[in-house]
């Protein structure tokens, strides 16, 4: 029998951090709010600004569910502090489109059934938008590799790939002429829009 003490590494008296004001442009709207420095951008979006489309899957940069775009570049919003992004221009899934007015990627994700539970989906779509903005992926293999920062536990990867390839194809961004459908053969089904 032995004694184990669960305690913090430091032994400083507990204290609270000061708060400060932060200004963010989110989905083209300016937003001022006050937070302590320990608030991540992800928690600021979800808990302070009620923008819950951005998801928390791991809170450690290990899953990509929290992906948002800052100045058009994709990042993990769980690993940056809101105060560090003071003045930044942020796009979240809510800014890419609405259920009534979907972006091409959002529509392609529906048409290709590129999700099941939907929890990784906003991060996948923001990541895919970042991928399109970067313009580095030109082939199926490159899209797979450059979409590997977004886990999908439902395993919708083949459909995520084909959704993105379709959007890239329409935009003339694909280098290889190989049949791009991820399912070995393109599924023989046309979408029925509901």
């Amino acid at each position: 029998m032995s004694t184990v003490i669960q305690k913090p590494l430091d032994h400083q008296p507990p204290s609270l951090p000061p708060t400060q004001s932060v200004r963010l442009t989110i989905n083209s709207q300016e937003s001022h709010f006050t937070v302590a420095p320990w608030t991540t951008l992800l928690d600021a979006l979800r808990e302070h600004l009620d923008l819950t489309g951005t998801k928390k899957g791991c809170d450690h940069g290990q899953c990509g569910a929290c992906t948002v775009l800052i100045d058009g570049k994709r990042i993990n919003s769980c690993l940056t502090l809101a105060v560090m992004r003071d003045g930044a221009d942020i796009t979240t899934i809510e800014g890419l489109g609405t259920p009534e007015n979907l972006s091409p990627l959002q529509q392609a994700f529906i048409d290709h059934d590129a999700f099941q539970c939907g929890y990784c989906t906003p991060g996948q779509i923001c990541s895919a938008q970042g991928l399109l903005n970067e313009g580095k992926a030109k082939t199926e293999a490159e899209v797979r590799e450059l979409m590997s920062g977004n886990l999908c536990r439902c395993g919708a990867y083949p459909n995520i790939l084909s959704a993105i390839m379709e959007v890239m194809d329409k935009d003339g961004l694909i280098m290889d002429t190989k049949e791009w459908s991820a399912g070995g053969a393109k599924p023989e089904m046309d979408p029925i829009n509901s």
Partner: peptide
């Protein structure tokens, strides 16, 4: 092969999960 009827809510981030 009907498209998912909950698709628009999920791709637009308006589908709300328990912590939301």
């Amino acid at each position: 092969p009907t498209n998912r009827v909950d698709g628009p809510a999920k791709v637009a981030g308006t589908a709300k999960y328990a912590a939301e």
